[in-house]
């Protein structure tokens, strides 16, 4: 691989790793509090899988040999400040109600389903292998979350109302994954990642069709789509909990 591509590729991987970590963390806030035992087991399983994905992707980032003092997966997770995180903004929002969390996970699963085929044929072999592993688990996640979204959208008036509210809040933010990032153009050219613009139309149309079939109205996207270095205070709250014990004892072995 052309050494000049290491930095933008690392940046791409960090964004995806941060997505998985932040989402997993949010999902794990439901453990012990889900609407019923079966949902608790299932959603905790998804959180566990996503954390594994994060670890895999942070590992790829570390392998690219950056010179930063903060480089290993644990260092990246526990010792960066909020501005240094590269997750998409939707991931860091608070868990809301069950409809909010189910929809968010569904959108993420559908976005991964869109990106992963291109990533599994990346010319950067470690990424291709990681993507293949992730894709196997994601297939199950998508089946799971799609089944829940369908049921909540088509359940009672109340559940539909909650899903509609969630969709209105989340749909514009979901577009962030398909906004072209100029820094990634060279990665696309080198066959390391697929082009966001090429994936966008199909994903968009599939999702609109799915939501309309569920009886939900897809809102117009009229707000600014954030960049990966644009975060909310929710991320600060999340990190202060996530990093609390590790930061209280820097250098300690756990």
């Amino acid at each position: 691989m052309n050494p000049e591509l290491a930095a933008p590729l690392a940046d791409f991987l960090l964004g995806r790793a941060d997505d998985e970590l932040v989402l997993s963390h949010r999902n794990s806030e439901w453990t012990g509090h889900a609407p019923i035992l079966e949902e608790d087991i299932a959603f905790t399983n998804i959180a566990l899988d996503e954390l594994g994905h994060a670890q895999l992707l942070y590992g790829l980032y570390a392998e690219l040999g950056r010179d930063d003092p903060i480089r290993t997966p644990d260092q990246l997770v526990y010792f960066r400040e909020a501005p240094a995180f590269r997750n998409a903004q939707l991931a860091e929002l608070p868990i809301g109600d069950w409809a909010f969390s189910m929809l968010r996970q569904y959108l993420f699963d559908s976005i991964e389903a869109s990106w992963l085929p291109g990533l599994t044929s990346s010319r950067y072999q470690p990424l291709a292998e990681a993507a293949a592993k992730i894709a196997a688990e994601e297939r199950y996640h998508l089946r799971h979350t799609q089944a829940r979204v369908r049921r909540l959208a088509g359940g009672t008036d109340e559940s539909q109302r909650r899903m509609q509210t969630a969709l209105e809040a989340q749909w514009p933010l979901a577009q962030q994954w398909f906004a072209a990032e100029p820094a990634h153009a060279q990665l696309v050219e080198a066959g390391l990642i697929p082009a966001a613009e090429s994936l966008a139309p199909r994903w968009f149309n599939e999702q609109v069709a799915f939501f309309e079939a569920c009886g939900l109205a897809v809102p117009a996207v009229e707000r600014h789509i954030p960049q990966r270095d644009e975060h909310t205070e929710h991320l600060v709250d999340l990190l202060s909990e996530l990093q609390q014990v590790a930061r209280a004892h820097p250098g300690a072995v756990w």
């Binding site: 079966e38 087991i41 299932a42 399983n45 199950y140 089946r143 799971h144 089944a147 049921r151």
Partner: peptide, 14 residues
């Protein structure tokens, strides 16, 4: 489970 599709998904997790 409320229906058979969720039953199959839940069975896998349990």
């Amino acid at each position: 489970a409320p229906d058979i599709e969720l039953a199959l998904l839940n069975a896998r997790d349990v």
